[in-house]
């Protein structure tokens, strides 16, 4: 019997040093990702990590996985393309709330309905940090920023409700205030066979509100497990997700107990079906030349 190789978090840490502001929540997310990848046990060369643009989208470069810091809001289409091209890869997508729910917001429902086996991690800091603190889609109403001097008049997008409403089969939330819990939900999301979504409340230390910082999150976070929530209960998950913004729940909101076939599996199946009746390449060439 041969033993499988085991990995430690260090195996996924690249030589590139993060340039995030000291104290940024994204450092915690990165640590949790390292741990989750070590627990999943796939070597770095079997992992593709795609991101959009923004502070958080730097994350693939800080791992030893294949990384693509792509185009603003387009992490999901690229991740889906990679998964279809090479279904054997473990594919992760990541980005900020602006990347995922503003410019990239249109891609989220389509990724959900196609159900590729990828994991999407949104590092939600409720602000555009990279461009110096403008309102983002998840900024709370009333927030004063560079672009809302008198306070935001807009209601925030609720990422959890958004993805649950479109039927995402795995929806979880974590915070770097509970790094071990965050590592666990990311690991669980990766292991889920289908589209999995993890919203991480990852505070911006430079432009974020004091009450949103990690220390404050520690005081207010509640695990869904402690509430006795059953992740198979989709309606209860929606109900709990509605309180996002007032409550900070962590853990798995929803996990479809009967996972549907993934897009990559369906594509593989279709290829096999069509392949049976397909003409050999030489015959196709002959037919082409006869015309």
């Amino acid at each position: 019997m041969t033993s499988l190789p085991s990995f430690s978090a260090k195996d996924f840490k690249s030589d590139l040093k993060p340039i995030w502001c000291p104290g940024c929540g994204d450092f915690g997310v990165l640590q949790a990702v390292y741990r989750a990848l070590a627990a999943v046990g796939r070597p770095a060369h079997e992992i593709a990590f795609v991101s959009g643009i923004g502070c958080s989208s730097r994350i693939p470069g800080y791992t030893t996985a294949y990384g693509f810091n792509s185009v603003h809001g387009r992490a999901l289409p690229i991740a889906q393309g990679i998964k279809l091209a090479n279904p054997d890869l473990l594919v992760l997508a990541a980005g900020g709330d602006g990347d995922g729910f503003s410019i990239g917001g249109g891609h989220v429902p389509h990724a959900i309905r196609r159900n590729p086996d990828i994991t999407y991690i949104v590092m939600d800091n409720q602000i555009y940090g990279l461009t110096k603190g403008q309102l983002s889609p998840t900024s709370p109403k009333g927030l004063k920023t560079a672009t809302s001097g008198y306070g935001s008049l807009e209601n925030p997008v609720n990422p959890l409700l958004y993805v649950l409403a479109y039927g995402a089969p795995f929806v979880a939330q974590g915070t770097p205030a509970d790094m071990s819990g965050l590592a666990q939900v990311i690991e669980e999301a990766i292991r889920y066979p289908g589209f999995s979504f993890v919203n991480v409340q990852s505070p911006c230390v430079t432009y974020g509100e004091e009450e949103g910082q990690v220390k404050a999150q520690k005081a207010r976070m509640k695990t869904l497990q402690s509430l006795g929530h059953d992740p198979a209960d989709q309606l209860r998950a929606i109900d709990l997700a509605r309180s996002s913004g007032t409550e900070l729940y962590t853990g798995v909101f929803y996990r479809n107990p009967e996972p549907a076939p993934t897009l990559d599996a369906l594509v593989r199946e279709r290829k096999e079906q069509l392949g049976k009746d397909a003409l050999p390449r030489e015959r196709i060439l002959e037919l082409f030349l006869q015309r």
Binding site: C21, P22, G23, M179, V214
Partner: peptide, 21 residues
């Protein structure tokens, strides 16, 4: 025992530092 069994026992918490501290 593995590193996965512990979190920030003696390591300062990751959010303890600030620019120009």
């Amino acid at each position: 025992v593995t590193r996965g069994m512990l979190f920030e026992v003696e390591a300062p918490e990751f959010d303890e530092v600030r620019v120009f501290m």
